[in-house]
Design a protein around this nucleic acid. Structure first.
Lengths: 219, 219
DNA sequence: CCATGCAGTCAACAACTGTTCTCCGGAAAT
DNA sequence: ATTTCCGGAGAACAGTTGTTGACTGCATGG
């Protein structure tokens, strides 16, 4: 069995990572469908042909970027949703976590937001798949919450989808808020907090009168 | 004063519209930042240089497309939000209207969804401005609803934003649902309906105990 | 120690891009 | 009737693109 881990593969994955990083950088000002192969290799400092040793095409690189941007996010999602505490605390914690993630990985967040509906089909589908996984995981976590007793699986999934979409919208808003303007960040934070709060209220009263066509409110 | 509107300007705006239409067509499979000037003129059947008679650049054309896609949507928004009737009826009507719009103008919807976070700054900003106008209009409409008594202006705007974002998400989901699969369309419709319903419930109970840190629920 | 594998280089290709300048024909204005 | 205006065509430009084939140096496995 291989006595050494291989200096070979280490070097390979190093330039591969360099290609991914350079691409992510270049994607700050354009979409993936306009990103050129040569543009990426030039930024890294390797020959254009070296690109093919790592990716079949730019689309391929895009799919790899989706993995990098979202693949490592699942544990964070799980711990966030399963955090204990008061509803308000959980909301604040979730938004804090989103803001922190945007601060640390702004390029990744921008990439996902941009290419989710972007012009490259395989990348769109990769993102869609990952988000579907997120939704399923959030749905499972919600199912374990005592607040979700008597909820149907369908309803849990539609709520999970609402949460996941809301997470993306909030992340995108943080991204657009300039890092130099803490007041704007605070504004985004406050709006997102209240939106989550409103959804939480709707969630608490979801099963309040679920009979067929009853009188308006039953306090 | 100009005695005739001019056959001249009529022909000009005809090719201008042809350029817009062709661009929208080509944008089904790519993003604006990769759309070439020559590509568009070739699709229309005019010389590349003719492009400059109508737009300074492809970015410029993109901004014009935003106007075309969203500018004419304001009346629809107004009539939708101000529609009378039961809450459930209004939800059904709104979703019906979104689905219908996506059916009639799929390319426009795709363009907005794609370029909202796309790689071309001026286009992103134009979309953002239009959506901000939508949010303001929805907020005004909500303010007139008796259900919004005692709501702060800030809260009305955050709810309006929630509605506008939800509208875009739903439109995008309808767009992804293949036209050949009515079952999928129905699924999207059902999920969107329940999400709007949940938001509506949260809205009804928004002011329920807005005092500081009270006991959990007060039935 | 030698032979294989493989990341990366180099040169060359046909095709395409945005932009410029010059010109043309017909509508508009005088 | 004559001049002006202007949407469009044509040719040409320097750059850029993706992809190819054959080549090189070096870590790996026998």
């Amino acid at each position: 069995m291989s006595h050494t881990p291989g200096v070979r593969q280490a070097r390979k994955q190093r330039t591969r990572q360099a290609l991914l990083d350079a691409a992510l950088d270049l994607l700050e000002g354009q979409s993936l469908s306009s990103l050129g192969l040569r543009e990426v290799t030039r930024a890294v400092g390797v020959a254009p042909t070296a690109f093919y040793r790592h990716f079949r095409s730019v689309e391929d690189l895009g799919v790899a970027l989706v993995e990098e941007a979202l693949g490592s996010l699942h544990p964070m999602i799980r711990t966030t949703v399963s955090t204990t505490g008061d509803g308000e605390e959980r909301i604040a914690r979730a938004i804090e976590l989103i803001a922190g993630h945007v601060d640390v990985y702004p390029a990744h967040v921008r990439f996902i937001a941009r290419e989710r509906h972007g012009g490259v089909r395989p990348v769109r589908e990769a993102i869609h798949d990952q988000l579907a996984r997120f939704t399923a995981e959030v749905g499972e976590a919600l199912a374990k919450d005592p607040q979700s007793t008597d909820w149907s699986g369908d309803d849990l999934l539609m709520l999970a989808q609402l949460y996941v979409d809301q997470m993306l919208i909030t992340a995108s808003l943080f991204l657009e808020a300039p890092a130099t303007d803490p007041a704007e960040r605070e504004r985004v934070s406050r709006i997102a907090t209240r939106q989550l709060r409103l959804i939480g209220i709707g969630r608490r009263h979801w099963l309040d009168r679920h009979g067929p066509a009853g009188a308006p409110p039953t306090p």
